[in-house]
Design a protein around this nucleic acid. Structure first.
Lengths: 217, 217
DNA sequence: AATATTTTTTACCAACTGGTCAAAGATTAC
DNA sequence: GTAATCTTTGACCAGTTGGTAAAAAATATT
């Protein structure tokens, strides 16, 4: 028991060894980047390892050296995802001015949709299919939302915003903002080339107007 | 050239023969019903013919007797879909009272989300993947939306509703209403069992409030 | 009842899928 | 430099996939 090494000869897969080498870190990032592309486009079942491998510039066995299964890759993406996706929710400040807080929340969600559309689509794909792989994470989300819904209720009771259903308010904000990532193909076609370029700026203006006016006490 | 029959001996597939028999009509409906289930859950690439066939209570070759390829089934579903999906848009009446018209439009869209969630998800899946199979249909949608956006502009000019970007107003209505079909798994988890049952009624109340107040002149 | 047509089944195929294995090649530690 | 480790590759596999062909079974037509 004197030695610190635990060689674990059975399956020396990359992710299981003691120290992550430089190459491991690089290749894993490459793979996750490529996988995000493919999974967000085709969903879990529609995506193939070959596709991901080619996209990452690796051979399939080489990719499988870093991630043992397709699920492993998908899991890792989902895990990394939900953290960032929920961050704006945490930032809602109970001490702040209600309509200002809501406005900032919308802006932050819209920025995420603009800057991380693939992540949004990956999530959308997962929920569309009934959220089979993120049931637990959704429970965490529920707890956080319940908490923040109570903040809204306090604001409403204080007459600082219109009386409304806080949960459905959240749904509306999520729907309207993520829509710009998930339904981008539709939005760009309907807007046409010229208006499409300003879509996020225009969306921000419109949504701020809608929610601020709609929620005034 | 006297005879009226064109026997077409090459490939007497069901859908190509002169008269649709009772069995053909029945089986095709069964298949489309099953396919809607599977495609809406897994997307085009994630769905398998075997799955659809089993769901429809047919053997795979038997299914392929009615629809030659997976694409054919998918196409038929999409074609039937967009008609119904766009109907509420047609019903917006330029002579009507703006806020009442918008309110009715929201209600109709919400009813579709409630009564035809699979259709909504099938559509969402298609758009998420970049709308590769419905590019043309989206063009038709664009034309219709442009037309109805002009109605909004007239209403705005007449001071009958708040000055806002009509296209983004449509996006917000689509997003908020379809969200209740597409993200049902998330919504039910976040609401919890008790509140989940009333989700569509509560949604209607909330959305009406949000949009009517938000769009008042 | 005999014929023509439509429907269903059985057996099958080639391409693709997720994944394994052993050996070769490249790095790193000593 | 050499041994130990880490990385990459090519060949491979069993299961699944979309789809076909031919014949059997059921139905409709006369």
């Amino acid at each position: 028991m004197a030695g610190t090494k635990t060689p674990q000869k059975t399956k020396p897969r990359a992710s299981e060894t003691r120290k992550r080498t430089r190459i491991q870190a690089e290749k894993e990032d490459q793979i996750l980047e490529a996988a995000l592309d493919v999974f967000s486009k085709h969903g879990f079942r529609g995506a193939t390892i070959d596709q991901i491998a080619e996209n990452a510039g690796l051979s399939k066995p080489n990719l499988l050296y870093y991630f043992r299964t397709k699920e492993t890759i998908h899991r890792r993406l989902l895990d990394g995802l939900l953290e960032n996706w929920l961050a704006p929710l945490h930032e809602i400040n109970p001490e702040g001015e209600p309509l200002v807080e809501i406005k900032s929340y919308i802006c932050r969600k819209l920025e995420l949709a603009r800057d991380y559309p693939r992540e949004s689509r990956l999530f959308a794909n997962e929920i569309l299919q009934g959220a089979p792989r993120i049931k637990e994470e959704l429970q965490d989300l529920k707890n956080l939302v319940d908490e923040k819904a109570n903040v809204f209720k306090v604001w409403i009771a204080a007459g600082k915003m219109a009386d409304c259903n806080p949960h459905h308010l959240f749904f509306s904000i999520w729907a309207t903002t993520q829509h710009y990532a998930d339904f981008d193909a539709q939005i760009c076609t309907v807007l046409g080339k010229a208006n499409c370029e300003n879509r996020f700026k225009d969306a921000e203006i419109f949504l701020n107007q809608l929610f601020v006016n709609g929620l005034k006490p």
